[in-house]
């Protein structure tokens, strides 16, 4: 069970808070944007948690923090029992190998001056993984085969490939490290429909074959549903609801989740955009209150807890508190 507090989670995130400085610190301004605020979830080995939200909801920030690419202001990210921010030296390097990240834009994430082969063997050679120093090309061909690309890809440059092929190369580069957890940040958003389906199915197959664990981040609820065992919905830096996928879709408890479902179903109208908050400026009450169709007076007073409405289904809403 991912959504609950199972004891054997591979990834355990507790009260994760990430803040970014907005500059102006010299003059005492120093405003800090809280992009992720007290985010908690677990992912069990071999399963997928889908993190869905709009731009600015903080979902990518959470993904980056899990991959060690964002500054953690408070809370913890535990991978396989070890707190990530406390690891140093060789243990930190080993973690870097076990957690990989795949980005949305395969154009931006591949160096245009490196062949696909060079991009793939750079990191495993640096980490001195078995066989990669002696025989990089053969090893690269092996991982390329895993993502369905032929041998001759090794010597070619990114501009020679389509978007779908580039995303496969980026995936091969992640797989080369032998990861256990892969953070997939909008893995198919930049791709055409038919390529997106191929890449998503490839990810599903690889998960099964290699026992991978995924944190998949996206804005498209239907796609996240296809790819995920459990789904967490983010709004304004917080997870507002998390549940097994089928449960979340059948019985959405948070008004924001319901709104997302209606919009995804083609209703006319617009979902209010989510924004992060400035650190230290927290006013009381639910963040969604100003836009919530079900708002009542208590919503502006009570900062809602994240409570379990049924086993495995948690929601952050004053009306459930």
């Amino acid at each position: 069970m991912i959504a609950g507090n199972g004891g054997d989670a591979l990834l355990r995130v507790r009260n994760l808070t990430v803040e970014y400085s907005l500059g102006g610190e010299f003059f005492g301004g120093g405003r800090r944007l809280r992009a992720a605020d007290a985010v908690s979830f677990d992912i069990s080995g071999g399963l997928t948690l889908g993190l869905v939200g709009e731009s600015g909801s903080g979902k990518s920030t959470v993904g980056k923090a899990v991959a060690g690419l964002a500054p953690i202001a408070a809370g913890s990210v535990e991978f396989d029992g070890a707190e990530v921010s406390k690891l140093r030296g060789s243990r930190r390097r080993r973690l870097a190998r076990r957690v990989q990240m795949l980005f949305q834009d395969p154009y931006g994430s591949l160096n245009p001056r490196m062949t696909a082969g060079e991009a793939i063997w750079e990191a495993p050679r640096f980490h001195d993984l078995e066989g990669w120093r002696a025989n990089p090309e053969e090893k690269a061909v092996e991982v390329l085969a895993r993502v369905g690309l032929p041998r001759d890809v090794v010597a070619r440059y990114p501009h020679e490939f389509s978007g779908g092929q580039r995303q496969r190369i980026a995936l091969a580069r992640a797989l080369a490290m032998g990861p256990e957890l892969i953070v997939l940040d909008e893995p198919t958003s930049a791709l055409d429909v038919s390529m997106a389906a191929q890449v998503l199915n490839l990810l599903t197959d690889l998960q099964k074959d290699l026992g991978l664990t995924y944190l998949v981040i996206g804005h498209d609820l239907a796609l996240i549903e296809k790819a995920s065992d459990d789904i967490a919905v983010m709004y304004a830096g917080q997870i507002v609801e998390v549940a097994p996928g089928a449960d979340l879709l059948a019985r959405p408890a948070h008004p924001y989740t319901r709104m997302l479902l209606e919009t995804a179903g083609g209703a006319r109208g617009k979902v209010p955009p989510a924004e992060g908050r400035f650190a230290g400026s927290d006013s009381a009450g639910c963040r969604f209150a100003a836009r919530c169709p079900k708002v009542d007076e208590a919503c502006h007073r009570i900062d809602p807890d994240f409570c379990e409405v049924v086993p495995g289904h948690r929601v952050r809403c004053p009306r459930w508190g």
């Binding site: 429909v193 038919s194 389906a197 199915n201 796609l223 549903e225 296809k226």
Partner: peptide, 24 residues
């Protein structure tokens, strides 16, 4: 038909998508 089938539909659950093999 293949293009429509490749788009995930809300409420269709976890699983694989219909894909169009090959490329344009």
């Amino acid at each position: 038909r293949a293009l429509l089938a490749a788009v995930p539909q809300l409420g269709s659950g976890r699983g694989r998508l219909e894909e169009i093999p090959g490329s344009v």
